[in-house]
C-alpha cells in the first residue's frame, strides 16, 4: 500500500469548520486599521501614513480608507489611542466607499441596494462556483494566499468552490495587483470571455487602490477598478486566505447572518 494513504490520516482533520463554526485563527486575525478615538490636538495623523489612507474631516475627526491601508502599523505605533488594527477577516466591502471607517453618511443605504442587485445576479450560481484568477501586477503574495485556499486547512472544495483553467467556465474573477498596463488587455479579454452572470473581486490593497505604488504611475493604473467593474473590494497586504474566503462568500450571499468574529458584511 502506498505510504501516502496513511500520511493523509496522520494529523486527523485539519480543515476549518468556518463559516459553520467560529475559527479562532480567523477571529484573531489582524486586519486593516480602524479609528478608535479622536486625534490629539496639534498633531496631524495623516502625515504618518505612507499611502495617504488617513484623512481629516472638516472637523477634528479622522477617517481611514482601508482600501489604501497596507497594514504597516505606523499610525498604530505613533497614535495608539487613535488607531488600532481591526480584528477578524471581514475587511471586504461591496462598494469602494464602504471601505472608509468610520462609515460615511449614506453608505449603509447604498450598500443595501448593491447587496440586493448582487444577490439577484448570483442567485443562479447556487452551490457550484468556479473561480478564475488573473494577476494584474501583484507582488506575488496574493497568489500565495489564493493558492492556499486549496490546502487542507481551508479546502474550498468543501464549499462547492473550484478553480477553473478557462474563463469560459468561470463565475468569479479574482484580480490581484495594482493594474499593470501590460495586463490591462489580457485582463479585459479574460473578463469578456466569462459568461454572465459574473463577479469581480479585487484581492488586496494593490488591486483596490494601487497601495504603495500609488494612484497611478507610468506603469500601473492605481488598482483594477479603472479596468473592470469590481463587485467586491478586499483590502489587505496581502489579505489572508480566510479574508479571501470571506470576500467570496460575501459576493455569493452565502455568509451566515452573524458570521463568527468577522464584524458582519458591509
Amino acid at each position: 500500500m502506498s505510504p501516502w494513504v496513511l500520511r493523509g490520516l496522520r494529523d486527523g482533520v485539519v480543515t476549518t469548520r468556518w463559516p459553520k463554526r467560529p475559527d479562532g485563527y480567523a477571529d484573531t486575525w489582524r486586519g486593516p486599521v480602524v479609528v478608535t478615538g479622536p486625534p490629539p490636538p496639534g498633531d496631524d495623523p495623516a502625515a504618518v501614513c505612507p499611502t495617504g489612507a488617513i484623512s481629516r474631516g472638516p472637523g477634528a475627526e479622522v477617517a481611514v480608507d482601508q482600501g489604501r491601508c497596507v497594514l504597516c502599523g505606523r499610525c498604530v505605533r505613533r497614535f495608539p489611542d487613535v488607531f488600532a488594527f481591526s480584528a477578524g477577516i471581514g475587511a471586504a466591502s461591496l462598494t469602494r466607499p464602504g471601505l472608509v471607517v468610520p462609515p460615511l453618511p449614506g453608505t449603509e443605504r447604498d450598500l443595501a441596494a448593491v447587496r440586493a442587485s448582487l444577490a439577484e445576479r448570483t442567485a443562479a450560481l447556487r452551490r457550484s462556483v468556479h473561480l478564475r484568477h488573473v494577476d494584474a501586477g501583484s507582488d506575488g503574495t496574493e497568489e500565495q494566499e489564493i493558492a492556499a485556499l486549496l490546502n487542507p486547512v481551508y479546502d474550498i472544495h468543501r464549499l462547492g468552490i473550484y478553480f477553473t483553467a478557462s474563463p469560459r467556465h468561470a463565475d468569479v474573477l479574482l484580480v490581484t495587483g495594482a493594474g499593470a498596463y501590460g495586463m490591462a488587455e489580457p485582463l479585459r479579454r479574460t473578463y469578456d470571455g466569462m459568461p454572465d452572470p459574473k463577479i469581480v473581486i479585487a484581492v488586496g490593497t494593490d488591486a483596490v487602490s494601487g497601495g504603495l505604488l500609488g494612484d497611478g504611475t507610468y506603469a500601473t493604473s492605481g488598482g483594477v477598478g479603472s479596468v473592470l467593474p469590481v463587485d467586491v473590494w478586499l483590502p489587505g497586504s496581502p489579505p489572508p486566505p480566510f479574508a479571501i474566503l470571506y470576500a467570496l462568500l460575501l459576493a455569493l450571499g452565502r455568509l451566515p447572518s452573524a458570521p463568527a468574529g468577522t464584524g458582519g458584511g458591509r
Binding site: 494577476d135 494584474a136 501586477g137 495587483g177 499593470a180 504603495l212 505604488l213 504611475t217 507610468y218
Partner: peptide, 11 residues
Amino acid sequence: IFYKHRGIEKR
C-alpha cells in the same frame, strides 16, 4: 516578462 511591469524602480 513585461506584462506585469509595475515601475518599481521609478516608484
